[in-house]
Amino acid sequence: MAVQVVNDSEFKEILANNSKVAVKFYADWCGNCKLFAPKYKRVSNEEEQADTVFVDINAEENPEARKMAGVDNLPFLAVFKDGQLVEGSASSKEDYLRSLLAKL
């Protein structure tokens, strides 16, 4: 599934309408965010992730979503189940992303 770039209001709608949501918070100036983007996209396209919605959120432009996940550094990965934050942390490691997805 393609990674959707969303804003605050779209994010709330996605959380309300989807059981499993993975989020990558980024900023345009963040080099590690850009380096991690292809890995995030590749994982989102894996067959076993078909029931999870993957989104990208610009942390600088979407303060409500940033606050919901407790973003403290970038890139920041988080997973939500049934609209609730399960876990999130600043990371650009594929292994951490996979460990988060396993918690869904």
Rank of each mutant, 00 (worst) to 15 (best):
Y40N: 03
V43S: 06
S44V: 04
S99R: 11
N7Y: 02
A2W: 13
E47D: 13
A2H: 15
N17I: 12
K24F: 03
V86K: 04
V53N: 07
A16V: 03
A37N: 08
S19D: 12
D56C: 01
V6I: 11
Y26V: 02
L35G: 06
N17D: 14
V71T: 13
R66A: 12
R42A: 15
N45G: 15
Y40H: 03
M1A: 13
D56N: 09
P63C: 03
S99Y: 12
I57W: 06
S9N: 13
L101M: 03
N58H: 04
E87G: 05
V23F: 06
A65Q: 11
V71S: 13
K67T: 14
P38K: 07
I14R: 04
G88T: 01
V86L: 05
D56I: 00
V3G: 09
V55K: 03
E61R: 08
E48K: 15
V5Q: 08
A22T: 00
T52P: 01
L77K: 05
A59M: 10
N73Q: 13
Y26C: 05
Y26F: 08
R66F: 01
A69P: 10
E48N: 15
S19L: 07
E13T: 15
K20V: 06
G31W: 00
L77C: 12
N73L: 09
A59I: 06
S89T: 14
E13H: 06
F80M: 02
V21Y: 01
N73T: 12
V71I: 10
S9C: 09
G83E: 14
Y96C: 15
A102K: 13
L35E: 14
P75E: 12
F76S: 05
A22M: 00
A50T: 09
V21Q: 04
F54R: 01
S19M: 08
A69T: 08
S99T: 11
N45C: 09
S91T: 12
A102T: 02
K20P: 01
K24C: 11
G31M: 07
V6S: 11
T52N: 09
F25A: 11
N58P: 00
Q4R: 07
E47V: 07
K39P: 00
F54E: 05
E94C: 04
S89F: 02
W29H: 06
Q4G: 10
S44Y: 05
L104N: 05
S19R: 10
F25V: 08
T52C: 06
A16M: 11
C30T: 05
E61Y: 02
V43N: 03
E64A: 14
N58Q: 03
V79L: 09
D8R: 04
C30S: 10
D82V: 01
V3P: 02
K12N: 15
I57Y: 04
D28N: 14
D95Y: 00
K39R: 14
F11L: 02
D72S: 15
S92I: 11
N62W: 10
S92A: 15
